[in-house]
C-alpha cells in the first residue's frame, strides 16, 4: 500500500438546507449525500467548502456536515444575496482538488442548480450529473455510475479533475453525531463578494399550489362527452391474436418487446 500516491483531494461543496416541513435550517439532503459519497471513497482526503453569510442558524446547519466525521469546514464569507460562484471558483482555482462533489440543487434561494455548471464552465472541467456511486479512481480517471430513471445505471469514465453532482439517487447520508460536530472547527475566510443584482429584481413568494390539470374533452355531442367521461381505460386498436400456436404468439410478443427496446 502506498497511501501517498493513491490519495486524492476531494472538495465537497455544502450549503445550508431547509427542512421541507418546518423550514428550519438543516444540512441539505443532496449535499449530505455528496459528503457521504466522498467519505466512502477509498483514499480520499475530504475538505468541505461553504460560501455564505456567517450567522447562528447557518452554523448549526453546517455543523451537521461536520458531525458526519470530518474535523473542519471552510466557510467563505459572503453577504446575503451575493453571487457565490466567483468566490467559490477563485477558492477552488487557488488550491485545485481533483474531484469536486456538489448537490444538484440548493434548498434555499433560487435553487436553480446552476452553480456546479457555472463552476465547470469557469474552471473548464468536465461535469457529470446524477451520480449514484464512484466505483473507483485509477491513474487520474474516475469510473462512475450514473443513475438513470427507472432504477437503471450507466457506467461513465471521466478524466480528473472533474465536478460531479449528486441527487436523490445517491446513497443516504449517515447520521450526524452531535459531539464531533461541536468539537470540529469551522474556519472562516474572506473573498470579494459580487452581488447578484438580478435576484434582487425578481419577486419571490412562497410556492403556490399548482393548479391540477383538467381533463379537457372536446366532443361535438352530449353523447360523446358522456362516453368520454364514463370511459374505462382502453388502449384502443390493440392487436388480438386468437387461434395461434404458442410459438406464433411468442414471436409476436418478442417482436413488440424488441421494438420497445426493453429486451437486453
Amino acid at each position: 500500500m502506498q497511501p501517498d500516491s493513491r490519495e486524492i483531494e476531494v472538495a465537497v461543496l455544502v450549503s445550508v438546507g431547509r427542512h421541507p416541513v418546518t423550514g428550519r435550517a438543516r444540512r441539505a439532503d443532496q449535499d449530505a449525500r455528496g459528503v457521504e459519497v466522498a467519505l466512502t471513497l477509498p483514499g480520499a482526503r475530504v475538505r468541505l467548502l461553504h460560501a455564505g453569510p456567517a450567522d447562528d442558524g447557518s452554523e448549526e446547519a453546517l455543523r451537521g456536515y461536520l458531525g458526519m466525521g470530518l474535523d473542519r469546514l471552510t466557510r467563505v464569507e459572503q453577504p446575503e444575496g451575493a453571487d457565490v460562484v466567483p468566490a467559490l471558483a477563485q477558492r477552488l482555482a487557488a488550491a485545485p482538488p481533483q474531484l469536486v462533489i456538489a448537490g444538484s440543487r440548493a434548498e434555499r434561494g433560487e435553487g436553480s442548480g446552476l452553480l456546479p455548471y457555472a463552476l465547470a464552465e469557469y474552471l473548464g472541467w468536465p461535469l457529470v450529473n446524477g451520480l449514484a456511486e464512484v466505483e473507483g479512481i485509477e491513474n487520474g480517471v474516475a469510473t462512475l455510475l450514473q443513475a438513470l430513471p427507472r432504477g437503471q445505471r450507466r457506467r461513465l469514465q471521466v478524466r480528473l479533475p472533474a465536478i460531479i453532482t449528486v441527487d436523490g439517487a445517491a446513497p443516504m447520508a449517515r447520521q450526524s453525531a452531535f459531539g464531533p460536530a461541536r468539537r470540529a472547527r469551522l474556519e472562516s475566510c474572506a473573498e470579494v463578494a459580487v452581488m447578484d443584482k438580478a435576484l434582487g429584481e425578481w419577486t419571490l413568494m412562497p410556492a403556490r399550489k399548482r393548479p391540477k390539470r383538467l381533463k379537457i374533452i372536446k366532443a361535438g355531442s352530449a353523447r360523446d362527452r358522456f362516453k368520454a367521461a364514463a370511459a374505462k381505460a382502453e388502449g384502443g386498436g390493440g392487436q388480438l391474436l386468437t387461434d395461434v400456436t404458442p410459438e406464433q404468439g411468442a414471436e409476436a410478443i418478442l417482436k413488440l418487446l424488441k421494438e420497445e427496446g426493453v429486451l437486453r
Binding site: G23, R105, E107, L204, M205, P206, A207, R208
Partner: peptide
C-alpha cells in the same frame, strides 16, 4: 418558476 426545493415561486 419554482425555486428552493419547490418552496418558492419566483416571478421574473
Amino acid at each position: 418558476a419554482r425555486g428552493a426545493a419547490e418552496s418558492l415561486d419566483i416571478q421574473r
